[in-house]
């Protein structure tokens, strides 16, 4: 199997599967440690709430499985946040692959800063193979209320009242806060860059 898409209680994984299909890639949705182990690559998608998702991962022994993966892994949205150390969302201990903490945006009506951060926003200071062929300042689609702080692993920066990690990368783990599966041609390019890793 080429790509395994992690199945867990919160994720709405269909959009990711559709995007992979459009790239000609067949993926399997699975929560089985054996299947994850046999895949060439793993995508950890996510829409949902941090604490209940972490609880689910622990109850199913998936926290250890994810941490010990040595193949290319791509976290998306909540997937990025859960790969970080800790989330302010219901004070949740996360997987700790990335040391960056996850905080909540502050809304600022006077400045027009709404929460959730919803829509297309520019990603700059990009580096690494995920962004190959994608110009600096390209817009991607975001929907989230929590964000990972900027840190050593940050490989793409976005601003919503404050600079935050739009993308992080360390060893075989990469993650993006935006939704590449819904970010038009730029998102497709990023996914196909990941598939080439």
């Amino acid at each position: 199997m080429e790509v395994a898409v992690l199945e867990y209680n919160a994720g709405n994984v269909r959009s990711v599967l559709y995007a992979l299909e459009r790239l000609g890639v067949r993926a399997e949705v699975t929560g089985s440690p054996e299947r994850l182990a046999s895949a060439a690559k793993v995508i950890f998608p996510g829409v949902g709430e941090a604490s209940s998702t972490m609880r689910y991962l622990r109850e199913h022994g998936l926290d250890g499985v994810i941490r010990s993966l040595e193949k290319p892994v791509l976290g998306i949205c909540l997937g990025l946040q859960l790969l970080c150390s800790h989330s302010m969302e219901n004070d949740t201990e996360c997987l700790g692959v990335f040391p960056e903490p996850v905080l909540r945006f502050d809304a600022d009506r006077a400045a027009g800063i709404k929460v959730p951060h919803m829509g297309w926003n520019a990603v700059s200071a990009t580096r690494g193979p995920l962004f190959e062929g994608i110009p600096e300042g390209t817009n991607f689609y975001f929907v989230h209320s929590f964000y990972a702080q900027i840190g050593d692993d940050t490989c793409g920066v976005c601003n919503h009242g404050i600079d935050f990690s739009a993308a992080v990368s360390s060893r075989n783990f990469s993650a993006v806060q935006f939704h590449p599966e819904k970010s038009g041609p730029a998102g497709e390019r990023l996914l196909s860059n990941f598939l080439k890793l």
Binding site: R14, Y18, R22, Y141, E181, S183, G184, G187, E188
Partner: peptide
């Protein structure tokens, strides 16, 4: 639509 559209 979901299968074919690459925007939200």
């Amino acid at each position: 639509i979901g299968a074919q559209l690459n925007i939200p």
